[in-house]
Design a protein around this nucleic acid. Structure first.
Length: 374
RNA sequence: CUGGGAGAAAGUGCU
């Protein structure tokens, strides 16, 4: 049973969930580790309902699988459900607490995250980083830095990395750089954090120094460099980096070169890369839609949009924004009305369209029916 | 004795 379990979980991790599921059903015995692995597989595949179904059918449950299902709920906007399950869990450990903490922090419920943090029986570096990161992501990077500088936990690399992102968020790039150099050990992730901040701020000279100093040009740092050069309009450098320097390219890396072409209006090159890339995710499709929409070629944009599997909110928004730019408010509006879920950006796009066209009454009506306004 | 499952941290898209 043990050997089979290892194999089935191997299938899960390599993305062969269907096959793993068939093996799972055929197994004579299934232990709690296997059940949990399958549960996690559904979670990773973005099927929280199925994960919950697996959990509910488990013959025995332990602290590990409870934490796993808590995570499923907490990261799918069901944090309150997670809380009620948490309260009924027979056993809790630092992981269970951290799942709840991370769930609240992630959804911006910082106060509740703090309550959990205070109430939990022990802290470790993961839980500290989780709360600090909640601060950074929700507009209080200063609190993250205070935690780092005024308490004295045993600082590990994770603490440094989080506080570097906090400093970057506050545009204190010099401080970040100085802290990076004072770290007890070198960390490529920490270097990459600072490098990305420089790249995002358009300081490609500083970014390049850090990049050059990296012993291994990891794919994340390289992608950040491509993105930075793209923003600066240095397409040639992007191409050299991507095609000549980089050895490993994941889908985000491919998207970064696609984005470089898209941002610079190189529709033909963007299409060529799009055709050539090993896999396309929704981000890739959106970029190729965007390059045509931005150029005002809504027919081309529309044909990619029509052929796109699993269109997401961003895809719809991209199309709408394209129509708005051409002054085709009727088309934009009909898309908007066909959207099943839309975001604040969708509303703002339409609003801007009406404003541009001096459609004051329509703009006002739309504004008043917005569920949220910023 | 070792080996299989859960928690945090870096890069890409729409206003």
């Amino acid at each position: 049973v043990f050997g089979f379990t290892v194999m089935v979980l191997g299938l899960v991790h390599s993305g062969h969930l269907e096959q793993a599921w068939r093996w799972f059903l055929d197994m004579p015995e299934r232990d709690v580790v296997l059940w949990t692995g399958i549960l996690q597989g559904f979670m990773d595949a973005g099927q929280p309902e199925k994960a919950k179904g697996v959990f509910d059918r488990m013959p025995q449950q332990d602290v590990v699988c409870c934490s796993a299902i808590l995570q499923v709920l907490a990261r799918n906007d069901r944090i309150d459900e997670a809380k009620s399950l948490f309260d009924r869990c027979p056993q809790l450990n630092v992981v269970s607490w951290t799942v709840m903490l991370g769930g609240y922090a992630h959804s911006g419920r910082i106060h509740e995250a703090e309550l959990v943090f205070r109430k939990m029986p022990q802290h470790d570096s993961v839980s500290c980083v989780a709360i600090m990161n909640g601060y950074v992501e929700h507009g209080r990077p200063d609190l993250a830095t205070s935690m780092f500088f005024y308490s004295n936990p045993e600082r590990d690399i994770g603490h440094y990395i989080t506080v570097l992102t906090a400093l970057a968020e506050m545009n204190k790039l010099k401080d970040a750089r100085a802290l990076l150099e004072r770290m007890p050990e070198h960390s490529p992730v920490a270097c990459t954090v600072v490098l990305s901040s420089y790249a995002q701020a358009g300081h490609m000279d500083e970014a390049w120094k850090l990049y050059a100093a990296l012993p291994v040009k990891n794919v994340v740092a390289s992608t950040a460099m491509v993105h930075g050069y793209a923003q600066a309009g240095h397409i040639k450098t992007c191409e050299e980096l991507f095609f000549d320097v980089m050895t490993e390219r994941d889908s985000m890396a491919w998207n970064s070169i696609l984005g470089a072409y898209s941002q610079n209006g190189a529709a033909a090159k963007a299409e060529a890369v799009f055709a050539k890339m090993p896999q396309r995710d929704s981000c890739s499709w959106n970029l190729v839609i965007q390059v045509h929409a931005e150029a005002g070629d809504m027919d081309q944009a529309g044909s990619f949009f029509a052929g796109m599997p699993g269109r997401c909110v961003v895809s719809w928004n991209t199309m709408m924004a394209g129509y708005v730019r051409c002054g085709k408010m009727d088309d934009a509006l009909s898309l908007f009305q066909r959207m099943s879920h839309c975001s604040l950006i969708s509303w703002n796009t339409m609003l801007e369209g009406f404003a541009q066209g001096r459609k004051v009454a329509e703009a006002r009506a739309l504004f008043q029916s917005m569920p949220v306004q910023d």
